Computed example of a mutant assay.
Amino acid sequence: MAEPRKKGLISHGVASQNRKARFDYAIKDTVEAGIVLKGPEVKSLRLGRAQLNEAWAGERDGEMYLFNAYIPEYQGGVLSRFEVRAPRKLLLKKKEIDKLLGLVARQGVTLVPLDIHFNEQGRAKVLLGVGEGRQKQDKRAYIADRDWARDKARLMRARG
């Protein structure tokens, strides 16, 4: 008989999402990367308490890191403490790192974490978006296009 799952834990699926990233940036491409975490950080992620609102990815010493991602301390009686906004290493192949750093240097794009999720094996992954920042007028046009698409779909449904 299978053991019952604990309430509130995420075994696979999205643990944290940066919903505003797709509004603030025009995402051109996405890259999935592994992330190096400690045990209590994984437990805290499984409870879905992480925040990616102000997080960004960048290079340090030739490796990619996730900066300013907020993963709160796990309150389950674990004694090991960790820094909640510590830089966390991203696991990418050298060719992928070189490609992303080249895009950042040449085209001036930004690496934005879109979400942290658990794959089928239960490993934490970060979905990075390669995006250009939107200006205020671009955001207004994006909102207008989105609203028109919604209204158009509503009209088509009403017609039958």
Rank of each mutant, 00 (worst) to 15 (best):
A144V: 08
D147T: 11
N68G: 05
L100V: 05
M64C: 02
D147C: 03
P4D: 09
L155W: 06
A21I: 02
G102A: 13
I35L: 09
F67K: 01
R5G: 11
Q75M: 12
N119S: 13
A55G: 07
W148R: 14
R22Q: 09
L52Q: 11
R22N: 08
F67A: 02
V78F: 08
G129N: 06
A21Q: 07
P40L: 08
K20P: 00
E73R: 14
H12Y: 14
G77K: 09
Y74R: 03
T30H: 04
E73S: 14
K6A: 15
V109P: 01
Y70G: 00
G160F: 00
F82Y: 15
Q51H: 13
K6W: 11
A124F: 05
Q121N: 13
M156D: 06
G62T: 08
A15E: 11
Q121G: 06
N119I: 13
H117W: 15
K93W: 12
K136L: 14
K125S: 06
G48M: 08
M156V: 04
I116W: 08
L127A: 13
G160S: 02
A153F: 03
Y74H: 12
D24C: 03
Y70Q: 07
I10Y: 05
N18P: 12
F23L: 11
F23W: 10
I10L: 04
K28S: 14
Q17K: 14
R154L: 10
F67D: 01
G133A: 10
R5L: 15
L52G: 08
D24W: 03
R49Y: 07
E3R: 15
L47N: 05
A141W: 00
E32C: 13
S80Y: 02
K89D: 01
K99T: 07
G39A: 11
K95H: 12
L37I: 01
H12E: 12
I71K: 01
A153V: 00
A2G: 11
T110P: 00
D138W: 05
R85M: 07
K28I: 14
V112A: 08
D145A: 13
R140W: 10
A57V: 10
G129K: 04
L155K: 03
G39P: 02
R19Y: 10
R146F: 10
G39M: 02
E32D: 15
F23D: 15
Q121L: 11
K6S: 14
Q135S: 15
P40V: 05
V36G: 07
W148M: 13
F67W: 09
Q135Y: 05
K6I: 14
E32M: 12
A57S: 08
R146S: 14
F118P: 09
E120D: 15
V84I: 13
K139V: 03
T110Y: 01
L90N: 10
R154A: 10
F67N: 00
F82P: 07
Q121K: 14
S16L: 06
K94L: 06
Q51C: 15
N119G: 12
T110M: 01
I143G: 01
V104L: 06
P72C: 14
Q107R: 12
A21T: 04
K95P: 00
L37Q: 06
M156E: 11
A21M: 03
L66M: 05
P40A: 07
F23M: 09
K6Y: 15
G108P: 01
R60V: 00
